[in-house]
Design a protein around this nucleic acid. Structure first.
Length: 269
DNA sequence: TTCCAGGCGTATC
DNA sequence: GATACGCATGGA
């Protein structure tokens, strides 16, 4: 990894990494863009650690970040040890994927916290991204952090009314109770094959095929997981009527990220 | 006003 | 197993 210390900051030179594309593409909901001149800046959290990160045309700066935190936490979170160039080279065999990678080649898969991903993607169902962010925002400011399963397990639909999460509140509570009681554990799911993991996740109320797939991909780094939402459904119908290419299956979830961004924002699609 | 959003539970066949 | 419908909320 090409990085250096600069005072309290870490300066990173990394190809295939664009902050806007990575932090504002609907995979994570707690990053806020900070208006700054000449650089792109975001503030966000992982494992209750706050990070201010910015990017100009030459490098990415991790502000007020120790080398330990950078190497042990953030390089993993931003998946810096994965070679996205070679992944995109594999994807480029397919015309649509090639276009999607060229459109936004700086997307990286964030290796998020399991519980936060589970809770966030339960909230995401039949919802739009700005409102998902709003609900999670209210949640985090109410508890002064992203609440643990234990914190949420004792709530009721009534006490969660401040979230304005609609019918999803009862699902959040069910997930919290199953995780807080130890009935469902991250560790157990990590050690399962993917179909078994899907079954366990779907035993949570409000977790169906799509949310389970998002938890596997974003919360457990199962890169073969392939979430299909309304946008990806359109991609599949339009470009892959005979199925998604087999050669990409091991990293289908990462391919899906490029396609999701492409179908939503590219003009010519 | 109606439609839609990173879907799912339930009823019905 | 497949299909139809309701669901909370808020922006377009």
């Amino acid at each position: 990894m090409d990085y250096k210390k600069n005072g309290n900051d870490i300066i990173l030179k990394q190809p295939d990494f664009d902050l806007d594309q990575t932090l504002d593409c609907g995979q994570a909901f707690r990053w806020k863009k900070i208006p700054t001149e000449n650089v792109t800046t975001y503030e966000g959290f992982f494992l209750n650690r706050k990070l201010l990160i910015s990017q100009d045309n030459s490098a990415i700066t991790f502000h007020n970040t120790s080398e330990d935190d950078f190497l042990n936490i953030w390089s993993d979170y931003f998946d810096l040890n994965t070679d996205y160039s070679s992944l995109k080279h594999i994807f480029s065999q397919d015309e649509t994927l090639n276009k999607a990678c060229n459109f936004a080649g700086g997307i990286r898969l964030l290796k998020q916290d399991f519980w936060e991903a589970l809770c966030s993607f339960i909230i995401s169902q039949n919802n739009n991204i700005p409102r998902i962010k709003g609900i999670i925002d209210r949640m985090c400011s109410h508890y002064d952090c992203f609440p643990t399963a234990q914190m949420l397990a004792n709530e009721t639909v009534e006490t969660l009314e401040f979230l304005r999460s609609g019918f999803r509140a009862k699902y959040i509570i069910d997930a919290a109770q199953k995780v807080a009681s130890g009935l469902i554990t991250e560790n157990a799911i990590r050690n399962m094959d993917i179909s078994q993991a899907r079954t366990v996740l779907k035993s949570i109320k409000g977790v169906g095929p799509k949310v389970a797939e998002c938890v596997l991909l974003y919360g457990l780094y199962r890169t073969e997981a392939f979430p299909v939402d309304v946008w990806i459904k359109r991609v599949l119908e339009k470009y892959y009527p005979c199925g998604f290419p087999e050669f990409a299956s091991q990293y289908a979830g990462i391919a899906q990220q490029y396609l999701f961004h492409y179908i939503r924002f590219a003009d010519e699609v």
